[in-house]
């Protein structure tokens, strides 16, 4: 049987890949995908704990996160398409309208 720690390490690795992807990649689509990675990293640890503690509430929470992620993907992609139509680019460095 695979110990809990391995799952948690996998979860942390996936989450950190997401974080670094979000902070370093310039293409907005890739950044968006990084966000999904972070969410799924969290999901892994939730499922692992659920199994380890024999408590189904963790898995219920995962369903919620997947639902929210689906909704977020729909709205996020719509916003990205609207942005692309206005700016003709998906590069975040060109989007600094909020500069003070």
């Amino acid at each position: 049987m695979v110990p809990l720690n391995w799952y948690l390490m996998l979860s942390a690795t996936v989450f950190m890949i997401g974080v670094f992807g979000f902070l370093t990649r310039k293409n907005i689509i890739i950044m968006f995908m990084s966000v999904e990675l972070m969410l799924n990293g969290v999901n892994i640890s939730l499922v692992a704990f659920s199994h380890y503690l024999q408590d189904l509430r963790g898995q219920i929470l995962v369903f919620f996160i997947i639902t929210v992620a689906a909704a977020e993907a729909a709205i996020g992609l719509a916003i990205i398409i609207a942005l692309f139509r206005n700016k003709s680019t998906a590069h975040v460095d060109e989007m600094n309208e909020m500069k003070g």
Partner: peptide, 17 residues
């Protein structure tokens, strides 16, 4: 202080992280 507000999303995210 306004120099902090660069308008780049990733700067804010980095600071947050």
């Amino acid at each position: 202080i306004r120099k902090v507000q660069t308008g780049f999303l990733q700067h804010y995210a980095t600071i947050m992280a």
